[in-house]
Design a protein around this nucleic acid. Structure first.
Length: 109
DNA sequence: ATCCTGACCCAAG
DNA sequence: GCTTGGGCCAGGA
């Protein structure tokens, strides 16, 4: 039996991402930290790239509310967020308004 | 084992 | 606002 760490991490990341409610967003770093892996922001991105279609991927943004996707993908993310009621200030999400705060007790597995 | 890359982050200039 | 450079971690060649 092998239990790759990546599998456990992915599960933790998915839980964190799924817990972001409609109309709110979180950054890659915040998702990683909330899942219990503070330095793994890049892996959150990797996971979303692989299987974002099964998650509310549009609610994960870059630091400061920046959308990190390019061209069409970026427009799609912005559109999907706006449909959820998220407001933008220029190119960034209005974080003061839409920042999701993770519950601290999510650290248990 | 090394080198490169990534839906990243942050401090500097 | 911008670009640069350093840092972080894992996976692929």
């Amino acid at each position: 039996m092998r239990a790759p760490k990546s599998e456990k991490r992915d599960a933790a990341f998915r839980r964190a991402i799924r817990q972001i409610p409609r109309g709110k967003v979180a950054t890659y770093g915040q998702v990683a930290a909330a899942a219990g892996y503070p330095l793994y922001h890049r892996h959150v991105a990797q996971l979303l790239h692989r299987c974002g279609n099964s998650l509310p991927w549009q609610r994960v943004v870059g630091a400061g509310g920046q959308i990190k996707l390019k061209y069409e993908a970026g427009l799609e993310q912005r559109t999907r967020l706006e449909l959820e009621g998220v407001r933008f200030r220029g190119r960034r999400v209005d974080m003061a308004e839409h920042q999701h705060r993770f519950r601290t007790w999510e650290f248990e597995d």
